[in-house]
């Protein structure tokens, strides 16, 4: 069937996004046709701006629209602690807690030889540079608890040892507010291993 070029281009564009197949792409595309021109312009501009105006924070490598991100620029934050995460989305999750007042460092991934990601592909050199500053006293490693995330955490720990900075790893175990009986065996085993004295 013939589909006019502009719409087939639009469909192809949507299909490049994760989680969107041909049918969803088609539905979205035709929906765009029915939108007000003003709204379509807004969307198009937002897409371009997100790509063009965003850059990595010169300090923590998180994505930002300024040279320095809001967290790094905030005078009220505790500069002696840095929480290392894999992804900008992890910062958002951490910030939602409103309990952490230190700084961040975003690695943009985990070390994975299979995906061709070595230590230099991540923002690890930038992290080491930050540690030369004497103010940093603790590094919290909050990479994911899978094989790659654990390996990255262990690698960082070895790398940072000579700096004489305290290095900690976030705990894993039972989700708060959940019932013990619904936890799977592996999580429960991990939670038992990581138990603490009260």
């Amino acid at each position: 069937m013939y589909i006019p070029d502009p719409i087939s281009k639009l469909i192809d564009g949507f299909m490049r996004l994760p989680g969107i197949g041909p049918k969803t792409a088609q539905r979205l595309s035709f929906y765009v046709l029915s939108m007000e021109e003003e709204d379509v312009m807004e969307l198009a501009k937002a897409l371009v701006r997100a790509k063009r105006d965003l850059q990595r924070c010169e300090e923590c490598s998180n994505i930002t629209d300024q040279k320095r991100c809001r967290v790094c620029g905030d005078k009220g934050r505790d500069r002696s602690v840095i929480c290392v995460v894999q992804d900008p989305r992890d910062v958002i999750a951490m910030e939602r807690t409103k309990e952490y007042h230190g700084l961040y460092h975003v690695l943009h991934g985990a070390i994975s030889p299979m995906e061709g990601i070595g230590p230099d592909e991540l923002s690890i050199p930038d992290l080491l540079k930050r540690l030369e500053d004497e103010t940093v006293q603790e590094l919290i490693l909050a990479t994911n608890p899978n094989i790659e995330g654990e390996a990255t955490a262990m690698y960082l720990q070895r790398l940072i040892k000579p700096f004489g900075i305290k290095v900690t790893r976030i705990a894993h175990g039972l989700p708060v507010g959940g019932d013990l009986e619904y936890a799977d065996e592996v999580t429960l085993t991990k939670a038992m291993e990581g138990r603490r004295e009260l």
């Binding site: 070595g118 230590p119 654990e150 390996a151 262990m154 690698y155 070895r158 790398l159």
Partner: peptide
């Protein structure tokens, strides 16, 4: 050969 020897040490530990 690179200095990722340190990373191989990590994988060995795991």
């Amino acid at each position: 050969r690179e200095r990722i020897n340190a990373f191989l040490d990590v994988l060995d530990e795991q």
